[in-house]
Design a protein around this nucleic acid. Structure first.
Lengths: 113, 113
DNA sequence: TTATATGCAACTATCAAAGTTGCATATACT
DNA sequence: AGTATATGCAACTTTGATAGTTGCATATAA
C-alpha cells in the first residue's frame, strides 16, 4: 500500500498529479485506492496479469498521433491524404497495442516475478 | 509555380507558416523555391517519385512518440520500462515509414497520375 | 526602377499538460 | 468522540510547444 505522497516523491512530482494518473488506472480496474488513515494505492490484480497494453489504454494518451474528430476538409487532395494517413495510423496503433500486450508489468520489475 | 500567399490562402493559414513548412521540404530536396517576381514553389521531382515517407521524414515531426534524449532514470523499474517501450516504439516508427513509403503523392491526388 | 517573391529573425497568441492550492470526505487509531 | 491521515475533486497558475504576426533584407522578372 503506497500513498500518493510516497509515489509522488519517488517520481519527483506532485501528489495531485499522481492521483490524476492513478485515478485513470483505477477506473480501468488496474488499481484500487483506499481513503483515510493507512489508505493508499495497490494493484487490483497480480503484476503478471497486467500488461503494458492495459496501462497504455487506461491512460488514454496515445503515442501514435490520431485524427481528433474535426472538420472534414473541403480540399479533395487533403481529404484523400487524410484518409490514407488515417488508415495507416489505425494499423500502426493496433500493432502497438498488440506488442504492448506481450509484456506484463511483472516482466518490467527486473526481479523476474 | 505557386506562391506562399496562394498556398496559405488555400490552406487557410499564413504565408510565413507555409514558408516554414515548405522550407523543410526544400531542404529535403522535395521542393524548389524561386525568389522575386514570378517566383514561388514547385516540386523538385515528379509526384510519382515522392512518397509520403519522404514528406513525413522531411517534416521531422514524428507521429509516433519518441524518447527525446533526456536524463537516464535512476529508478531501475522505470529504466527497464523505458527500454522496453522505446524498443517497441522504434519498431512501430520503422513500420510506419515502410507503410508510408508505399504511397506516392501522385496517388493521393485523385486523378491517378 | 518598381513590383513581387522568398528568407529570416523576433515577437505575440493560443492551447494543452503539468503543477499548485484549498477543501470536502472517508477512515483508522486512540 | 476526536484527531491524524489519506483520497477526490474543482479551480487556479505555470510552463512549454506550436501557430501566427510583423518587419525588413534580399533576389528577380518586367
Amino acid at each position: 500500500m503506497r500513498t500518493s505522497a510516497d509515489i509522488a516523491e519517488h517520481a519527483g512530482t506532485n501528489p495531485v498529479v499522481v492521483r490524476r494518473v492513478l485515478g485513470k488506472l483505477r477506473q480501468a480496474g488496474l488499481l484500487t485506492s483506499e481513503k483515510g488513515h493507512s489508505g493508499g494505492w495497490r494493484l487490483a490484480r497480480q503484476p503478471r496479469d497486467i500488461t503494458l497494453a492495459d496501462v497504455y489504454l487506461a491512460l488514454d494518451e496515445r503515442m501514435v498521433a490520431t485524427d481528433e474528430a474535426g472538420d472534414v476538409p473541403t480540399c479533395s487532395v487533403e481529404h484523400a491524404l487524410h484518409e490514407r494517413v488515417s488508415e495507416v495510423l489505425r494499423e500502426i496503433e493496433e500493432n502497438l497495442v498488440q506488442k504492448l500486450r506481450e509484456t506484463s508489468i511483472s516482466e518490467v520489475r527486473g526481479g523476474g516475478l
